[in-house]
Amino acid sequence: MTQTLDREPAADVRHRLDLLREMVRIRLFEERCVELYSAAKIRGFLHVAIGEEAVAVGVNAVLDEGDAVVSTYREHGHAIARGMSMDSVMAEMYGKATGCSRGRGGSMHLFDVGRRFYGGNAIVAGGLPLAIGLALADKMRMRPTVTVCFFGDGAFAEGEFHECVNLAALWRLPVLFACENNLYAMGTAIARAQAETDLALRAASYGIAAWPVDGMDVVAVEEAADRAVDRIRAGGGPCFLELRTYRFRAHSMYDPERYRDKAEVARWRERDPIDLLTHQLTAEGGLSAEARDAMAAEVTAEVDRAVAAAEAAPLEPAEDLERFVYTETEA
């Protein structure tokens, strides 16, 4: 766990450089995925979170190895920030056998039990029941862990959200509800779907600690997540963070994006989380132009290696298609 408020100045700069690097890794990975999808290298559905990197990086920065993460179909950034390798994620995008889900899940179903990363769920709000189940199991086994559940503002319209928050509050489960409020549930603006758009206020009505956070500021996200996780670990019950963010690209690669105007997107791009932290570090003398270029080059090379590995990886053999449907036991 980080101690964001007690770090020495030099260590603080190094830490923020690490946060920046993680956001750049996610951004360049997803930008390459867009290119590959357009070239028909990646098939199926593709939902990128370009613009929302501060949420994935800031929250994951405060988690321990034993904590659990449950995500949505827009989860590439969550997976990479959790520590999953680009090779395994890119191979999964390609549908290759070396992918984290053996190529069977694709973009929306990334999974890594070793890192306690439990998807990638294609159904809106579908990860919430899974998250409280994981948290309940950990609590019953007296494990000092936290389960983080990422979901979008659209999940507020689903019954699972209200049922799960209510149960988590009743049973004081160690869950961090991390709501990525990007203002649009697919193509529906939040004001058109929710009578009360202050989502933190609504979550607080269940008797849990809840507050809004600037989801474009990775340091603000990290500090809020640190505070929430400390509270949860101390037995304070679940917490809810409304992470106010914005996706710069359309809902998916199939989305014509006719529900918002270009001026709105341009206004939000002025608060690009990568640019905000880059400018801050540069102004403080913690990041030179040369170091910034070197970081981009190193990450680009990492993405290149992941693409090359995915291109070279095998597809799952046809004779294995019926495997992993049921638990395999030795004869």
Rank of each mutant, 00 (worst) to 15 (best):
L173D: 04
G187A: 12
N181V: 09
G159Y: 08
L199V: 04
A203D: 13
G106E: 01
L199D: 04
L167D: 12
T147G: 07
A155V: 03
A125D: 07
L201V: 10
A125G: 09
L167W: 07
N182L: 10
A125H: 02
A189E: 14
A204Q: 12
T197M: 12
D112F: 02
L201D: 13
L130W: 00
F111W: 04
S107T: 09
F151I: 03
D153F: 02
V146N: 02
F156L: 10
L167F: 14
L173I: 05
A189H: 14
C149A: 15
A193M: 12
V175C: 11
N182P: 11
N121T: 07
M186P: 10
L134E: 03
A200W: 03
G120H: 03
T197D: 07
A168W: 01
F156R: 00
A137W: 01
Y118S: 05
T147E: 05
L134V: 08
G114T: 07
S107C: 11
G119K: 00
R104K: 14
T145E: 13
M186G: 07
T197P: 11
A131E: 01
A189T: 06
A185E: 04
V148K: 01
G152S: 14
I190L: 14
A203E: 09
S107I: 03
A157P: 03
R115Y: 05
T147C: 13
W171F: 12
G187W: 03
R172W: 11
L130I: 13
V148A: 06
P174T: 08
V148Y: 01
R192I: 11
V165Q: 05
Y118R: 04
F177C: 09
F150N: 03
A204P: 14
E163W: 04
Q194P: 10
M142I: 05
C149I: 06
L176T: 08
F117M: 05
C164V: 08
A155S: 15
A193Q: 13
L173K: 07
G106P: 02
I190N: 08
R192A: 15
R116Q: 08
G154H: 02
E180Q: 15
G106T: 01
V113K: 05
L134T: 00
L167Y: 08
R192P: 14
A191Y: 05
P129C: 11
R172E: 15
L176C: 09
R115L: 14
H109Y: 08
A122G: 15
A168C: 13
P174H: 01
G119Y: 00
E160H: 12
P129T: 09
M186C: 13
D153W: 01
L201R: 14
A135F: 02
V113L: 12
A135G: 12
A203M: 11
E196S: 11
N166Y: 11
C149P: 07
R202W: 05
A135D: 07
I190Y: 06
N121H: 13
C164A: 15
I123A: 10
N182A: 13
A125N: 02
G154D: 06
G126T: 04
M140I: 08
R116P: 00
H109P: 11
M142Y: 08
D138I: 01
C149F: 03
V175W: 00
H162A: 14
Y206H: 13
G152M: 06
L170R: 13
C164S: 15
N182E: 11
